[in-house]
């Protein structure tokens, strides 16, 4: 078990791209829900495409980003996750804890599935996803059904996520929300002797430009 750092100076654990990614995804999921529910399908399209670019960016950031953002540092083996959930793991984690790490991976995977199925969906009226014409109407309809099902899964995951964050805030006295805004955690919440590397911002911008370019390319593939 790592001892908490004995100082009042807050420690930077989340880099800027990860924080912007997190809150932008929150906004985009809300926009996507509202736009689809109210028939603003052009808004829904751009919201979904932006979300897709950000998710692809997050995948790359999970490989090349800062220490706490890398998958290898927060995707722990099942025995460690189980030990953590049974409160038998006394370790401190600067970034995601073992349970939260898999929650993040699951959320990214499901959101990615939602964004990808959206590309092939249609609303049966005047809107089709940019790649809907690549598949038969029957396949597009089935994917649209899947798009609706994944939406319900996302709602459940969001609720689970909020419940978990609330648990840390109210029961464990650990404000994860604030840390995701400021990027900093109280020293008692991070391991002693912490040595985090932060990838430079321009790398993030390059990766984001790359993923935005990929999404734009995919979008124009579907334009007749």
């Amino acid at each position: 078990m790592n001892d908490p750092v004995k100082t009042d100076a807050h420690v930077l654990v989340w880099d800027v791209p990860t924080r912007i990614f997190h809150w932008t995804v929150v906004v985009l999921v809300a926009v996507s829900w509202f736009s689809a529910d109210n028939g603003f399908m052009r808004v829904h399209l751009w919201s979904g495409l932006t979300l897709l670019a950000l998710l692809l960016f997050r995948l790359l950031w999970g490989l090349f980003g800062s220490t706490t953002s890398r998958f290898i540092n927060f995707l722990h083996p099942p025995n460690k996750v189980m030990a953590y959930l049974r409160w038998r793991d006394g370790a401190l984690y600067a970034g995601h804890n073992p349970a939260g790490g898999w929650m993040v991976a699951l959320m990214i995977a499901v959101l990615l599935a939602q964004a990808l199925t959206g590309l092939f969906s249609n609303d049966g009226l005047k809107f089709t996803g940019p790649l809907a014409l690549w598949v038969s109407d029957d396949v597009s309809t089935r994917i649209t059904g899947l798009h609706g099902t994944i939406y319900n899964i996302i709602l459940a995951l969001i609720w689970l996520h909020v419940v978990a964050v609330g648990f840390y805030l109210l029961v464990r006295n650990h404000n994860l929300v604030g840390a995701m805004f400021t990027g900093k955690k109280h020293p008692r919440h991070v391991p002693a002797g912490l040595n985090l590397n932060f990838t430079r911002l321009y790398i993030a911008l390059l990766l984001l430009a790359l993923t935005a370019g990929i999404v734009a390319w995919v979008f124009f593939q579907g334009v007749p």
């Binding site: 078990m1 006394g90 648990f167 805030l169 109210l170 464990r172 650990h174």
Partner: peptide
């Protein structure tokens, strides 16, 4: 799970 001191609610109350 590391102990960060008493929270504002107990786990059963929160659940």
């Amino acid at each position: 799970m590391a102990d960060f001191g008493p929270g504002r609610m107990s786990a059963p109350a929160y659940l």
